[in-house]
Amino acid sequence: MSTDTRAAVTIDKKKSGAPQEIHTTKSTTGDKVVGGASHVILAIWSVIVILPMVWTLIGSFKTTKEIFASPFGLPENWNFDNYISAWVDNNFGGMFVNTVIVVGCSLVLVMILGAMCAYVLARFSIPGSRIIYYLMLAGLTFPVFLAIVPLFFILQGMQLLNTLPGLIITYVAFALPFTVFFLYSFFKSLPYEIQEAAYVDGASEWRTFFQVMLPMAKPGMAAIAIMNFLGLWNQFLLPISLNTNRDNYVLSQGMASYASSAGYALDFGQMFAAVMITIIPVLIVYILFQRQLQGSVSQGTSK
């Protein structure tokens, strides 16, 4: 019997129903206590997070009078009047479109630039690469509010103050350091053999990156895309300081402006509807991309 045949026989025995030693572990009392306490804490945290959202959703179908008369009761009439009023009368529709444009363009740019920058810094030895990487890390430690005044004058000098393109550039600069930091270790851990095999097959650097290495980093790209989307969608300080034109308002500053301008005459039903308009896109994006987080680098390489 040849060596190949013996190897095949050995593999067949493993695949067959041959008895194998099974290692079992017994849970100790401490493990059970920790597991039970963890489940209790997670249940309490879920209630703390879910109940306010459910209350806001129910309140978005109520009038202000109903909210004060019965805060935790169901609305008498289930209709979308508050959503229509918030969308049309208070221009949340226009602010929603502005937010989608700003966040969408910023997310695409920061993902492309961040992935390319992290890939080059992680896979190639170029002069000054470590310095560039440390400068990216320094950008994570720099408080955003300290950069407001310089950003104001920079955008003013570029004629981009109070414009959507200016806000997009600022968002990209704000999210780029964390994106590079997150993807750097991810690209660093990818096997070099696959990259070398692509070079042997005649692939260029661009083709190797976009068709070979980037698909392998799909789980990491999905994770950082969700985190960037949440951070950019909920950004408040940058637009409130650099975007004072009401026609270019995004949802976060529009809601703050609506609540402060209405004062004690605030329509809480419309405000709750505006809150749901702001929250629902975030939930939809997370639901669509959460399965992408369940991948791994090994799954990407096996494909």
Rank of each mutant, 00 (worst) to 15 (best):
S70Y: 11
H39M: 08
G295C: 03
L230Y: 04
R6M: 06
F145L: 07
A197P: 05
L237K: 04
G128A: 03
I224H: 06
I44T: 12
I132H: 01
I148D: 05
L161H: 00
I131D: 08
T163D: 12
A203L: 15
W45L: 15
I194E: 09
L232G: 00
G94W: 07
K303E: 02
I240L: 09
L242V: 03
F268E: 02
L176S: 03
I240C: 02
V144D: 07
V275F: 06
G128I: 14
T63P: 11
I226Q: 07
T5H: 09
S260F: 10
N228R: 14
L251K: 03
V88G: 08
Q195L: 12
M116G: 03
F61K: 10
I131G: 12
V144G: 00
S38Y: 06
E205C: 06
L183W: 01
V40G: 11
P52Q: 10
S85P: 01
V282N: 13
S27M: 13
I22W: 10
G93K: 12
L230A: 03
V40E: 03
V149E: 09
T301H: 02
G36M: 06
M271I: 00
G73T: 02
S16Q: 12
G263K: 13
M221V: 15
Y258K: 05
F96W: 05
P281E: 02
C105P: 00
A217C: 13
G295I: 03
R291M: 10
P191G: 11
M158W: 04
E66Q: 15
A265R: 13
F145N: 06
F153T: 10
L237N: 08
A256P: 10
A18P: 04
L113W: 05
I84H: 09
F236T: 04
D267V: 06
I112W: 02
G114F: 07
A273E: 05
I126H: 08
Q211W: 12
M158H: 01
G128N: 07
